[in-house]
């Protein structure tokens, strides 16, 4: 079975929200269990968590602004790369993502491009 890589991007509706340390710990455990379940199927590739604070955005004329909060209000909270047989399987993985417990949050599912010059 041929496998492709997909990136699941966690989009939080409001990156300014402050969670209590206890809440953070619960989310962390839930996220680790979710990723552990994918890894147990040998379908986890890599993952990156992105703390909300201190982000910067560089614009085309070298203008630096604080925070990733531009035209789109959403903040990316992290992303993981998985192996899946189809986009539908990757979507199934995404459905289990604890980020979706937050109203308005989404998970974007994107196939990793091969080196075919379509960038």
């Amino acid at each position: 079975m041929s496998m492709d890589e997909y990136v699941l991007i966690f989009r939080h509706e409001d990156g300014q929200k402050v969670a209590s340390p206890e809440q953070m710990q619960i989310w962390m455990k839930q996220t680790m269990d979710w990723i552990g379940g994918i890894a147990a199927q040998n379908k986890f590739v890599s993952g990156t968590g992105l703390p909300f604070d201190g982000a910067k955005v560089v614009g085309h004329n070298g203008v630096v602004t604080n925070g990733p909060f531009g035209d789109i209000k959403e903040t990316i909270g992290g992303l993981i790369t998985v192996r899946a047989e189809s986009v539908d399987e990757a979507v199934e993985f995404a459905k289990g993502c604890p980020v979706l417990q937050g109203e308005g949050n989404t998970v974007e599912v994107r196939k990793v491009a091969k080196n075919d010059g379509t960038h």
Partner: peptide
């Protein structure tokens, strides 16, 4: 143990680890 298996599977998959994690 569960959290350690989660992390282990993320860096090194093996069927044994997958079963023990479950």
């Amino acid at each position: 143990i569960l959290q350690l298996f989660n992390q282990l599977l993320m860096i090194s998959y093996s069927p044994v680890a997958a079963l023990n994690r479950t």
